[in-house]
């Protein structure tokens, strides 16, 4: 029941993100979406992921989004995307992303069992740490290097 509630909330607020005229409202709805997704993580017994999702996405990245929107002072009058082709391209790319996601997720039948029984242990912080630093060390480190280079790049641009 909680699952359905969260799902409706996530989908509804995600739709509101798209349909809100005011960009600030879009961002706030996006935050609600993140919260409901975090709720799903908690249902998966992955509290760590849930809270990190909130801290990083809802807490930090969305604040930056808000910053940008507030500073640029966008409002519903000057809404961009008047171009028809741009809309078309947006729909196409969105659909293809959906396709990829469905293709990736259709084999997750085995996981469903765990989710339904609420026995998943993979999201607990100990297990997650072990998995990250044993099985996935290389990707983990590569991604951290990626972040580092992004930071360096930002500093370089900022210094100019």
């Amino acid at each position: 029941m909680l699952f359905w509630f969260l799902t409706v909330m996530a989908l509804g607020s995600a739709l509101m993100v798209v349909f809100s005229k005011n960009p600030v409202h879009s961002i706030l709805w996006l935050i609600v979406t993140f919260f409901s997704i975090s709720g799903h993580y908690v249902l998966l017994n992955a509290q760590f992921l849930a809270i990190v999702n909130i801290i990083v996405y809802a807490g930090a990245i969305m604040v930056l989004f808000l910053f940008v929107v507030m500073m640029m002072n966008l409002n519903d009058i000057s809404s961009p995307l008047k171009n028809k082709w741009l809309k078309f391209a947006g729909v196409i790319s969105g659909c293809s992303l959906l396709l990829v996601l469905i293709a990736a997720l259709k084999d997750t039948g085995t996981m469903q069992q765990e989710v339904l029984l609420n026995t998943g242990k993979i999201g607990l912080i100990n297990n997650l740490g072990t998995v990250l630093f044993k099985d996935y060390v290389l990707p983990f480190e590569i991604s951290s290097v990626l972040f580092l280079s992004a930071m360096v790049g930002a500093v370089v641009i900022g210094k100019k």
Binding site: I51, V52, I54, I55, A58, G59, V63
Partner: peptide
Amino acid sequence: LYVFGVVS
């Protein structure tokens, strides 16, 4: 971490 989440 919960504290940090709420604080953020």
